[in-house]
Amino acid sequence: MKKSIIRCLLCFGLLLIVAAVAGYFYLQNYASQKIQLQQDDQLITIERGTSVQRLSQQLEAEQLITNSQLLPLLLRFDPSLRAIKAGTYRLSANMTLRDLLVLLCSGKEAQFTIQFIEGTRAKDWLLTLQAAPYIHHQLTDLSLEQVAEKLGIDGHIEGWFYPDTYHYTAGTTDVAILKRAYQRMDSHLQIAWNGRATGLPYKSAYEMLIMASIIEKETGVDSERGLVSSVFYNRLGIGMKLQTDPTVYYGRSESIQGPLTRDDLREKTPYNTYVIYGLPPTPIAMPGEASLQAAAHPTPSKYLYFVADGYGGHVFTTNLDSHNRAVQEYLRVIRNR
């Protein structure tokens, strides 16, 4: 009798072992199934506090897996896959269910990028931010003054953001991105200011930032930036007006479109360098590193004038007669086109 009971217990134990092994391999096979992507660059967002049951329902609702009923059992069997972190994740081709769970536990959220171009203005940056995906907007419909207050910037925000490509995760605020850009510009400006050439006419690093923004708007040719800087340096040195068109454009009413007119050049605004002496009160755009360095290190020259050559560059001259001839040559090139 006892032997029969023992044999039954052994058989029952063996059946349990076989069932456990079969269940183990079945779950492993389940975890190894490929998830079904519905598009190439597919994302999944896991909300904070998502339960195992809610995760199961979400994966099936988003058609990533076809059978969610085994997922709680898999997670109970392998607790290392339960530590899921909230966030937005990028899925990849050939990813298995286990790969997906490992990703959700890693916290390695999808990275997004936003690019800001040299020479653009604060209003352009705000529009770029508004159009970017997965950003939490806190600056919508705010004036530039209100944006400055939100960022903790004392004064005008123009010129204070460093142009570059910035990476962010879903839910990052527009405030956080602009603060990073501000901190980088402040750092680069201080480095350029501390390493500047001697004898420059700037009273502060901010004045050098203003100059850098003007250089940025005057030329996109790296080899010319130092020469453009030298023209403005030489003009400031002899008390000559800067007479640079980009400052006039900046100070002109946004309702006015088209090229500058004689009236524009005569209108007295704080930014009209055909009327005022010295620098305008603020930067007129976001300068890049090359323009910061050009403002800090003007190329030694005696140039006082420059004009477009019609081919993407400029002609630099030392006197008005030569400048006028360069202007006429530019107009001839344009007419021939």
Rank of each mutant, 00 (worst) to 15 (best):
R252Y: 13
I5P: 00
F77Q: 09
N94P: 00
G258K: 12
A308M: 03
L127Q: 14
A131P: 00
Y168P: 01
F232M: 15
P270Y: 04
S143K: 10
E207H: 01
Y274P: 01
F232W: 00
L64F: 03
G312Y: 13
A176F: 15
I177D: 05
L75Q: 09
L139H: 01
N324F: 08
W160C: 10
N324R: 15
R48P: 00
V52M: 06
E145A: 15
I65L: 12
H297N: 14
V248M: 08
L91G: 07
K2H: 04
N194I: 00
K241D: 00
A31T: 02
R325S: 14
A205P: 05
R262P: 01
Y250N: 08
V275R: 05
T45G: 01
G278W: 00
R337Q: 14
L101D: 01
R332I: 09
F161G: 04
H137G: 02
I276T: 09
A176E: 14
Q328L: 15
A205C: 05
I284K: 01
A61Q: 15
H314A: 13
I6H: 02
R48G: 01
Y30D: 05
E149Q: 15
P163A: 13
V18Y: 07
L292F: 09
G226R: 03
S230E: 05
A192V: 08
G171W: 02
I157S: 10
E149L: 12
A19M: 10
V228S: 05
R252H: 12
T169Y: 11
R252L: 12
C8Y: 04
R262D: 08
P133E: 03
S230T: 13
K268Q: 14
R196N: 02
D174E: 09
D245F: 05
G155I: 03
G239M: 04
S80W: 02
L178R: 07
L304F: 07
F316R: 06
S106M: 13
D309K: 00
I44S: 04
A132Y: 11
T282C: 08
V307Q: 01
R76Q: 15
I46K: 09
T299A: 10
I157E: 07
R337G: 00
I153K: 07
S51G: 09
A20R: 10
G313L: 03
L15P: 02
E267H: 11
L104Y: 07
R184I: 06
Y202F: 15
P298C: 09
K150Y: 11
A308S: 13
A296M: 11
Q293H: 14
P133S: 03
L10T: 07
D164R: 12
S301G: 12
Y330M: 13
L70F: 12
L71Q: 05
A131E: 03
L292I: 02
Q257E: 11
D124H: 09
Y305F: 15
M286E: 11
K302V: 00
S213V: 03
K150N: 09
A308P: 04
E62G: 04
Q146K: 14
V231T: 03
Y305G: 11
G195V: 01
T128S: 12
V327Q: 10
S56K: 10
D164F: 05
G288Q: 00
G313N: 08
A20V: 04
V228Q: 09
L71G: 06
Q115T: 15
G310N: 11
V228F: 07
L100F: 06
S229Y: 06
S291A: 15
Y168D: 02
A197R: 12
T219M: 10
S92V: 10
S4Q: 11
H167N: 13
C105Q: 12
G171C: 05
